[in-house]
């Protein structure tokens, strides 16, 4: 209603494909009430709303950039469907956690903790790497932008340059990771 006004679905999709991060905020605000009402009606509380909605919006963002993406319903319906799935998944996780909590879960927990620690270190290395390289890899792996869009966003000449640059960046990161870790620790 305010700010950028009400946008048509196809415009939102187009802008997401172009990497306009404002669309994340727009989707979040537009669907906040709907998702919140749904969660509150389904054994949820206010604290869960933000997390679920963030995950929902980011999932929509990622899905939209997939080559096979085709919107066959209203975007709001699609967003709500993802939101509902994520909330039910979260509810299942919470129930499962309660059941297993009492059982001997300590060994498995330490294993998970080890994996998380590993990923935490690698993430730190990702964070510390060259900004452009970090963005390039994030755009490619997470956002799923096409090499053409990445070229436009990062100012590369064409898609081939992006492909080549991506390899160089990844190789650099891999070397850093391997230099930090023993190969056995990673495997």
């Amino acid at each position: 209603m305010f700010g950028i006004g009400k946008l048509a679905d196809h415009i939102i999709i187009e802008r997401i494909k172009q990497g306009d991060e404002k669309m994340l905020v727009y989707l979040y605000k537009e669907h906040h009430t709907m998702v919140k009402n749904f969660i509150l009606k389904n054994n949820g509380d206010d604290s869960a709303v933000d997390d679920v909605l963030q995950d929902t919006v980011i999932a929509v963002w990622k899905n939209t950039n997939k080559p096979e993406f085709l919107l066959q319903a209203k975007l709001s319906t699609y967003v709500m469907a993802i939101g509902k799935n994520l909330w039910f998944k979260e509810l299942k996780k919470r129930t499962k956690f309660k059941l297993v909590d009492e059982a001997n879960h300590l060994g498995h927990g330490s294993e998970e903790m080890h994996l998380e620690l590993d990923q935490g270190i690698i993430r730190q290395l990702v964070k510390d790497m060259d900004k452009t390289c970090g963005k390039l890899l994030a755009y490619f792996y997470f956002d799923g932008f096409s090499t053409k869009v990445i070229a436009e966003k990062l100012g590369y000449a064409n898609a081939d340059t992006v492909k080549s640059k991506k390899y160089q960046c990844f190789k650099k990161l891999q070397n850093t990771v391997l230099a930090t870790y023993n190969k056995e620790e990673l495997l």
Binding site: L24, Y28, D50, D118, I122, R123, A138, V177, K183
Partner: peptide, 25 residues
């Protein structure tokens, strides 16, 4: 190794977007 690195990249980007969303909303 590649899978782990990509997973870390994704996790970092996910965190970055969530922070962006949190900041904006």
């Amino acid at each position: 190794i590649q899978e782990k690195i990509i997973s870390a990249i994704n996790a970092e980007r996910d965190k970055e977007l969530k922070e962006y969303l949190t900041g904006k909303t």
